[in-house]
Nucleic acid binder design. Sequence first.
DNA 1: TGAACTGAGTAAACGGCGTTCACTACCGCT
DNA 2: AGCGGTAGTGAACGCCGTTTACTCAGTTCA
Lengths: 241, 241
Amino acid sequence: MSEITRRERMRVETDLEIRQHARRLLVAEGREAVTLRAIARELGITAPALYRYYDSREDMLRQLCVDICDDLADELNRALEEVGEDDYREKLFTVCRGFRRWALGHPREFTLVFASPADETGTDTGEPAQDQLGSVFLRVIGPLMSEGATQVVNEGAPSDLHNDLAPNQEALAAAFTIKGIEVPEEATGPHAVYFLLRWWIRIYGHVALEVFRRFPFDVAHADRLFESLLTELTQDVGLDG
Amino acid sequence: MSEITRRERMRVETDLEIRQHARRLLVAEGREAVTLRAIARELGITAPALYRYYDSREDMLRQLCVDICDDLADELNRALEEVGEDDYREKLFTVCRGFRRWALGHPREFTLVFASPADETGTDTGEPAQDQLGSVFLRVIGPLMSEGATQVVNEGAPSDLHNDLAPNQEALAAAFTIKGIEVPEEATGPHAVYFLLRWWIRIYGHVALEVFRRFPFDVAHADRLFESLLTELTQDVGLDG
DNA sequence: TGAACTGAGTAAACGGCGTTCACTACCGCT
DNA sequence: AGCGGTAGTGAACGCCGTTTACTCAGTTCA
């Protein structure tokens, strides 16, 4: 009847518990404290047992990254559901604000996922590393683009950059298809690509600097500054009015 | 005669060697490989001896950060000397390009200094953490501002943000005086502050994403994209033409 | 000059870490 | 009933940071 055996059920359950405790340790004490022995201790088993689930500590941390990204994407998508159907500007704002709020509320997770060279955490191919959080935003922004917001993004990219942008257009199109997201042609045009990059650079820059507290001086009213960044972004891209 | 004793000379020399080997390990194998025992091994001494120089491994890594920042600041200042005296736009570009090139050429150093929450590496006061790299740019941008480029920065900040910017103006002014940099009044006006923040957000965003390879897809011609970012920045702030 | 002092470096030890390996015991299948 | 695979164990290895008691050469000063 049940094609899932007792053993399989137990395995999945244990795996889940491992990740939960790993997450708890990360949040409470930071990356360094996410130790195989500490996790095992909390689970009431011995450390070598964890090697039945992960190849190494590093492998486990990689999985933890994936979990975190999934959660983030879920949270953003959930917030997105509460926004009017065709208010693309508001949808975009919701994603941006949601990302900032998440990062500020989960600094340790943010650091683990967003602030380490992709080569060291990912495999050698370089592909899955980009997946890490690139996917988070493609997952969110993809539907947005395919819904029609793209029609507005038809300016912004300097004409002398068009040639350089071409390979990036293909890369973006490829990334969308890999994620199984159907998008109209304009969504991978030079203006859309340029918009996406500028958008991500500014959002990431602000959020990372705020989380790491690496502004050249202590910034007051960072929230207002972020709002200003958002409106400026929409003006630059022709999404306003 | 010589007020510096042999012992003192030896101490300074050993300290220098420690940091050199620490740096080498960081560059070659990453932060995790910078262990007290590894450094001691390379120096031909035992690990506990290093406690004569640093309180802990963490303390040593903090010092390493300071060294790295100093080097970066030196490099930027050196590049700046080769730029015409009153070409402020070119000076700004030089600093930005220099920062990007340095980061791409020193990914491990960049990661150590720029990609960890300030609270964990710095002391509790929060002050020295800002110093870390804020100082690098204040040291470079301070002279630039005091030389007169500020006269151009008199637009940009939305008027409804002026009130929020006020405490930041004071913070910037304080940061300048701490660094011993004299700047004219306009250099800490709302427009200057807003300009500085926008500038740092975009530069840092692009560079960090490029170093960490965290763009949502593999970006081709990142150098051209960066150049575009620079020109756009000058346009936004009225430095063009 | 020689005695007292200071501080760089050592050796041994502690507990914690990731990882490997030989092993047990039990679940699921035939 | 018996067999194979697999979750988990326990001991061990070689790392690590850090502490402690110690040696002994360089410095200072009577």
